[in-house]
Write a protein that binds this DNA or RNA. Structure first.
Lengths: 213, 213
DNA sequence: ACCAACAAACCGACCGGTCGGCCGGTAAAT
DNA sequence: ATTTACCGGCCGACCGGTCGGTTTGTTGGT
């Protein structure tokens, strides 16, 4: 006697919803929004087109739901990059942040592609808020973890902790976006680990030889 | 008696070609490849759809021609960023490079959007080569301008000039892509000029206070 | 009995690409 | 200098097929 899960209506409904979102993520991230048809999504999800419209009012709502999924995931403490940021002392953990950025882009590459889709086809209207609030989120994060003051005392005179963290975050995310999304291995002309180490060194101590003032 | 330019066939043909490319750039960069119709392009160019197919064998060739246009422009010495790189001493001219990156993204924002389109809808197949060869291009550029050795002697032990230039280039381009393409002003939480200055400082001397070893 | 979950038929608009043919510029033949 | 033959630029109709969204109807859990 197999234990058939009874599967209530609510469970079935939620399951279909997620199937639709998963299918839409796959298509939107590989063909863009406008070129993806609701038929493609329905077929990929194993449901009828009518059913898709039963769960979502229209195509754009599906797209927005996917970006919400992503931004919500990025805001939890369990998010790999946030874990890396919280578990070490910045900027001593720059190499770990680099690896976390790589893992993030690798695991969420389809969502990152969605950002490009939004910038092109929606003028960035769905992602703008997220990027505009990024600095404030890092600020709150540093304060919550009691990192701001100790970090500030280690930084160069007049350098804000937020700028330092933002800079490191952006360069690592950008590097691995090109490696993973663009499909370009070693575009700095050398291996990934070496690049992460070199970037970390430069961010910590600069590219110029130290000079005695 | 108005001096009507006689306009030979060849001139007319070239003019139509450019009108098609300009129209295609506008649509591809705002709606993506798949969601842009050849009718849109023809209408925007003031030509018939049949005529578009007289000048280009198919839709994808138009897209490729646009990316070629862009990459060709970026490879000339007259390109603003290349001029800035050639006209100062790296990394003393980081602020100038930052401004050149801003001007570039501003002037070529539609082409930058095309890169996102290619990554999403063509898996990056048309832009991959350009990014894969970027480090080599910078290497050749530095050698041609006799910058490599003097720069190397100023850099930290074991730091390659290419990595230094690549890092600076990527972070500035990325910063202004978010500002201009994503439409997010001051996403580091402070004004643009200040960010460029802060990034330049960090790249040159690091974020950490100097220490006596 | 009722309503959520689903499928399928359907709508008008639009898709990329092709086609036949018109028209004016170009050049060889006269 | 004129005629004639040709060619490239160009147009609009047309092809089979697909689009986002709606409507209608069936099924099955509650």
């Amino acid at each position: 006697m197999v234990k058939r899960p009874p599967q209530t209506q609510g469970e079935r409904s939620e399951r279909s919803r997620q199937q639709i979102l998963d299918a839409a993520l796959k298509w939107f991230s590989h063909r863009g929004y406008g070129a993806t048809s609701v038929r493609d999504i329905a077929e990929e999800a194993g449901l009828s087109k009518g059913n898709v419209y039963h769960h979502f009012p229209d195509k754009e709502t599906i797209f927005r739901a996917l970006l919400d999924r992503y931004f919500q995931a990025m805001s939890t403490p369990e998010f790999p990059f946030n874990r890396a940021l919280a578990s070490g002392t910045f900027p001593d953990n720059l190499e770990a942040l680099g690896r976390a950025a790589r893992d993030t882009v690798r695991d969420y590459r389809e969502y990152v592609a969605l950002i490009y889709v939004d910038v092109v086809e929606f003028d960035g209207s769905h992602v703008r808020k997220f990027y505009a609030e990024m600095a404030d989120r890092f600020d709150a994060f540093l304060k919550e973890h009691g990192m701001e003051e100790p970090l500030k005392s280690r930084l160069q005179e007049g350098l804000s902790p937020i700028s330092a963290v933002m800079l490191a975050t952006r360069i690592f995310y950008n590097y691995f976006s090109i490696e993973i999304l663009f499909g370009v291995k070693d575009h700095f002309g050398k291996g990934t680990d070496e690049v992460v180490h070199e970037i970390s060194r430069i961010l910590r101590h600069g590219m110029l030889r130290s000079y005695v003032p």
